[in-house]
Structure formats: C-alpha cells, structure tokens
C-alpha cells in the first residue's frame, strides 16, 4: 500500500475545489486589505493594527480551511465513498489524517498569502517572532480540525455550508478576529475559553515574546479532548447506522 500516493490525490482534489479556495483564501485577504490598509499606523490592544488584523484574518481563514477539509467527509459519506473505502485496506485513521493534512496545507497557504499581504501593509516581525506565531497558530487549529471531522459525520451536504459559515463566523467574531469584541469584564473571561481567542492573540504573544500563557494551552488542550471525544462518538454512531 502506498499511502503517499493516496494522499497526493487527496491534495489534488483539495486544490481543484474552487469554492473551498475562495472562502479560505480570497475572502480573508480581501477583508484584510480593505480594513487594515486604511489603518496602517494605528495601535490596538498594544500592538500595531495591521499585525492584529492580519492575525485575525489568518485565524478566520485557517479555521475555515481546517473545518471545511474535515467536513468534506459529509459529501463523501453521502455518495457512499466512505463505505467504498471501508472495503479497502486504507485504515480509517489514515483517511482522517489525510483530511487533516489537506486542511493544514490549505491553512498554511492561507497564512502565507496573508503574511505577504501583511508585510506589504507594514507588518514587521523578526524571524523568531514569525516562527512563534506560526507555531502557535498550527497548535491552535488542532481542535478546529477535529471539529471538521465531527461535522463530516454529523451533517449533510445541504447543511454543511451554513454550519461551517456560522460556526467559523461565530468563533472568529467572539475570538476577536474581526476586531477585539470584548476587552474586559466577565465576558472576557468567557471569551478567553475559546480557542479562536488564542489564535487571534498569537500575534501579540509572538510580539511580546514567550508564547501563550498557560491558560491558552489548557483551553486548546481541553477543546481538543472534548471535540475528539464527540467526534469519536459521532463517528461510531454513523458507522453503526450502515
């Protein structure tokens, strides 16, 4: 068995899906240029506005990328493809791993495009700051990848669009991806329990240095565990049905 060949075709399929490219790459870029461009020299939550907004848009675009990739399982389930795969030697975990890999690949592309756009609008970070930020973003996306796999077993192709759009918009909005929604009070405590908040704040953490505070790691870990448990449940229920 050559799982790399299998993975290669999964990647090809991802890049041939134009609508997918549009939502995870084009929309965040357009919004970033439209909003950050005119406010180049302002500061927000103690960091330059373009840097904040660039990371906000990266958070949104990459969330869409990794959730959509897993959620595509819904379409493949609907046409009987997952059933077809169950009678091949491909292990189920490889099938999921390929979906997560494709989501991350798309997320990295989304990051690169926004980083280039950010640099053009005046975002300056040292190489090590870039590395820290990218590292934190990649970790922060784990629960969203798992959420995508869960969506893939929970939804139908009809409900997929609204579900992904709604979920990512809500996470992005509350997490402050479109601008800091809450900056203090009890609500901030709640917002700090969202993994998307820590995605957005990855830029600040990188700029200040030292990465995330312990709370961030705990939040990401808890969300990863909870979404994984739910995803396994949903998967088991779905395969039993057949």
């Amino acid at each position: 068995m050559n799982q790399l060949t299998y993975l290669r075709y999964e990647v090809i399929r991802t890049y041939r899906n134009r609508r997918f490219l549009m939502f995870s790459l084009a929309f965040p870029l357009i919004l970033f240029l439209a909003v950050a461009g005119p406010h180049k020299n302002q500061m927000i939550v103690g960091i330059p506005f373009p840097l904040y907004y660039m990371t906000g848009m990266v958070a949104w675009g990459t969330m869409v990328a990794v959730i959509s990739s897993g959620a595509r399982i819904a379409a493949e389930r609907q046409v009987g493809w997952t059933r077809q795969l169950r009678i091949t030697p491909l292990p189920t975990w490889s099938y999921f791993a390929a979906k997560i890999f494709c989501g991350y690949l798309m997320a990295i592309l989304s990051m690169l495009i926004l980083f280039v756009a950010g640099s053009l609008v005046g975002v300056h970070l040292t190489l090590s700051q870039w590395f820290v930020m990218v590292g934190l973003l990649l970790v922060g996306l784990i629960p969203f990848s798992v959420l995508g796999i869960m969506f893939g077993h929970l939804l139908t192709t009809d409900s997929l669009g609204p579900a992904i759009g709604g979920t990512t918009a809500l996470f992005a909005l509350l997490g402050g991806a479109y601008g800091p929604l809450v900056t203090g009070g009890a609500l901030l405590t709640v917002v700090k329990c969202l993994p998307s908040y820590w995605l957005v704040i990855a830029s600040k953490s990188a700029l200040i240095g030292g990465g995330w505070p312990p709370q961030a790691w705990i939040v990401i870990a808890v969300w990863t565990v909870v979404t994984s448990v739910l995803a396994v449940r949903v998967y088991q229920r779905d395969t039993r049905k057949i």
Partner: peptide, 17 residues
C-alpha cells in the same frame, strides 16, 4: 468522488492495495 479524472481515481484506489 469528484475533482479527479477516471484514471486518477482508479490510480488512487490502486495505491491502497
């Protein structure tokens, strides 16, 4: 599944055996 040609799809399956 879509976004593949017939030959690509059959090659993808062949890789699993």
């Amino acid at each position: 599944i879509d976004y593949l040609s017939v030959r690509e799809l059959v090659s993808m399956m062949a890789a699993l055996y």
